[in-house]
Computed example of a mutant assay.
Amino acid sequence: MAKTLELVFITADGKNSKISVEDPQEPVDVNAVKQAMDSILAANIFMTSSGDLTAKKNARVIDRTVEEYEMS
Rank of each mutant, 00 (worst) to 15 (best):
E68M: 10
S20V: 10
F9H: 00
A55E: 13
E6L: 06
N44I: 04
S49Y: 07
E6D: 14
A59L: 02
V66Y: 09
A2N: 15
M71Y: 11
T48G: 07
E22K: 04
S17L: 09
I40L: 03
E67D: 10
M71A: 13
V30A: 15
K3H: 14
S49P: 11
D29S: 08
V61T: 00
T48D: 01
E70C: 01
T4C: 08
R60N: 08
S20R: 00
D23K: 04
V33L: 01
T54G: 01
S20D: 10
S17P: 05
V28L: 01
S49W: 04
D13K: 15
M37D: 01
I40Y: 00
T11E: 06
L5R: 03
M71I: 14
I45F: 06
I45M: 10
L41W: 12
N16R: 11
P24Q: 11
D13W: 02
T54C: 02
Q25D: 12
V66P: 03
A2E: 15
D63N: 11
E67N: 10
V30C: 07
E22V: 02
N16E: 13
A55R: 03
L53H: 01
S72P: 13
D13Y: 07
L53A: 01
S17F: 15
K15D: 15
A43V: 09
T48L: 00
I19L: 14
M37E: 03
R60V: 03
S50I: 03
E6C: 02
K3T: 15
I62M: 07
G51Y: 04
S49C: 08
V30H: 11
S72Y: 12
V30F: 07
P27C: 09
L7A: 14
S20H: 03
D38M: 06
A59D: 04
T48H: 01
T54Y: 02
A43G: 07
D29C: 07
S72D: 15
I45R: 13
D38E: 15
D52N: 13
Q35I: 03
N31D: 14
S20T: 06
V8H: 00
N58I: 04
F9G: 02
L41Y: 06
A43S: 14
K15S: 14
V61H: 00
K18L: 07
T54K: 12
E68Q: 10
E70G: 08
A43Y: 07
K15G: 11
R60S: 07
A36E: 12
S20K: 07
P24Y: 05
L53V: 02
S20F: 01
